[in-house]
């Protein structure tokens, strides 16, 4: 059973983010919120797809329970990742939460149309950011029933 307090199985969360500082802050966020998880990280969309398909250096990667996806990344951005995941039958069941700076309405609409599970923005204030992280964890890892592991 999936728990965040360490008593059960730990969730595998894949963070797709190119900004190192943001990665660190996200890690801190989960720490601060006392959420015990396995946080995996890739820097761009291309590595994300490789991770999900267990290609190359990611041969032993687990299938994530949840993906936190940034939008603007080099090489392959969040939009392209989502578009590809939706087409792939092996991958399109994994919940994807967009976690990004952009509040642009068009981005929000586009991502929901590509069937992201949720869209959140990153607040500047760290405490607020903690609340977002806590919120995501509470909802996706505790409240919601996730798709069964294949």
């Amino acid at each position: 059973m999936l728990t965040t307090d360490g008593t059960g199985r730990l969730a595998d969360i894949l963070l797709v983010e190119d900004n190192e500082d943001d990665v660190m802050l996200t890690r801190k966020g989960f720490q601060r919120a006392k959420l015990k998880i396995h946080l995996h990280h890739v820097e761009n969309g291309e590595d994300c797809m490789a991770f999900l398909r267990k290609k190359g250096s990611f041969a032993t990667a687990p299938t994530p329970d949840l993906i936190l996806l940034d939008l603007n990344m080099p090489v392959m951005d969040g939009r392209e990742v989502l578009a590809e995941m939706v087409q792939d039958d092996a991958l399109n069941h994994i919940p994807v939460v967009i976690l990004t700076t952009s509040e642009d309405e068009r981005d929000v609409l586009e991502m929901y149309k590509l069937r992201c599970s949720a869209y959140t923005t990153k607040p500047v204030d760290f405490n607020n950011f903690l609340k977002v992280v806590q919120g995501i964890a509470d909802f996706w890892l505790t409240l919601v029933v996730l798709p069964p592991q294949r």
């Binding site: 900004n19 500082d21 802050l25 801190k28 603007n72 700076t101 990153k122 500047v124 204030d125 950011f129």
Partner: peptide
């Protein structure tokens, strides 16, 4: 809006 906010978050986040 985008690019300016990222370093902002870094500064604020780590300060906190």
């Amino acid at each position: 809006s985008h690019d300016l906010q990222t370093p902002l978050r870094t500064v604020a986040g780590f300060a906190q």
